[in-house]
Every structure is written in C-alpha cells, then in structure tokens.
Simulated scan of single mutants.
Amino acid sequence: MPFNKIHVPTALPAAMCGMINEQLHESLVETCGVNPDDNFCLVTRYASDDIILHPTFLGERDPAGTIVIEVTLLAGRTDQQKEAFYKNIRHRLRKIGFEPRNSIVFLVENRAIDWSFSEAGSVKSVLGL
C-alpha cells in the first residue's frame, strides 16, 4: 500500500502530474508487486526558489524543472525489485515526455503498524496481521 508524494514545480501542468502518477503507480505494480487498487498520491507544488538542489550531484539536472518522487511503502522489496523500479519509472517518464534526468526518486519503507486508514486502527490490527 504505497503512498506516493510527487513534489513538482508550480508551472508543471496538472495533466502531466496525473500522467506521472499513473506511470509511477504502474511501475510499482509491475516491478514491486503493488496491488493495482492501492493508488494513493499527493502532488505538492513548489516555487522555483523553494527548492535547493545540486544541479550535478550523481547526474545533470535542471533544478527549476526537477520533480521529487517519494514513495512510502511496506518493507519487503528486494534490492533487485528496487533497482528495476528505478529504471522502469525513468523509462516511463521519458515515454510521457518528461526528462527523467530531472527526477529524484526515493523509497521510504515501513510496516503495517505504521498505517491507519480508519477509526478501526492500524492496518496491522484491521487485517489481523
């Protein structure tokens, strides 16, 4: 049950944000075994002077056009799945016309006890895990 946060420049069109999330979700399903119904995303926008990025750290990028993709998900994916995800999402970004070098992607792992979707409590207790 990942929760995606896509941090984007203010000027990036909403349609492109939607396409990025669609590709992100499909990539997670394909490479990390995510349930196709588990699609949760928050798009946050930032002004160009609200982000500080090194323009060449581990690759060239345009700081004014860079997006940050943050995925929080249950722990358990292998290093191979994660590497496949990173390659796959960048391929998909290129496919929709977004320059993949202008993306920073990272995963944050946690456990079922760390999620709650209702008054019933954690996902762990609700699902009896």
Rank of each mutant, 00 (worst) to 15 (best):
P63G: 10
R101I: 12
L107V: 08
M16Q: 09
V71L: 12
L42R: 14
F40N: 05
F40A: 04
T10P: 01
T44W: 04
L107A: 05
R77Q: 13
E60F: 07
R92V: 00
L28I: 01
G65N: 09
S125W: 07
V43C: 08
S122W: 03
A84G: 02
I89V: 11
K124Q: 11
F98N: 04
M16I: 11
L107P: 00
F40Q: 04
L28P: 02
N35F: 01
F3K: 13
F98W: 10
R101L: 06
R61H: 04
D62A: 14
I20S: 05
A84K: 09
E109R: 02
R61Q: 01
F40S: 05
L58F: 15
P9C: 01
L24N: 08
N39I: 11
P100W: 08
R92D: 00
S125T: 15
T78C: 03
W115T: 07
H25E: 02
V34W: 01
G76A: 12
R94W: 11
I113M: 13
T31E: 13
A112Q: 13
I51Q: 09
S125R: 14
I6D: 00
V105Y: 03
K95F: 05
I104H: 12
P36E: 03
E22A: 09
R61V: 03
K124V: 01
D62R: 12
E22L: 10
I51S: 05
W115H: 07
R111Q: 15
S122H: 03
T10S: 13
F117W: 06
K124L: 15
A47R: 15
G33N: 03
L12M: 15
L24H: 10
G59H: 06
M19P: 00
Y46C: 04
R77N: 07
V105R: 03
H25Y: 05
P2F: 03
H7M: 15
A112L: 09
A47C: 05
C32A: 10
F98A: 02
L74H: 05
A47I: 07
S118A: 10
E119P: 06
T31Y: 02
T78S: 15
A11L: 12
Y46Q: 09
D79T: 10
S48Y: 02
D79N: 00
I104E: 10
T31K: 14
E60K: 13
T66C: 06
V8F: 05
L93Q: 04
T66A: 04
V108L: 14
E83Q: 15
N35S: 13
K82A: 07
V29T: 02
I113T: 15
T31P: 00
Q80C: 00
K87E: 11
I89Q: 07
V8A: 11
C41K: 09
A112T: 08
F3L: 12
R94T: 12
F40K: 08
M16V: 14
F106A: 06
G128P: 01
S116I: 03
F85E: 00
L127F: 14
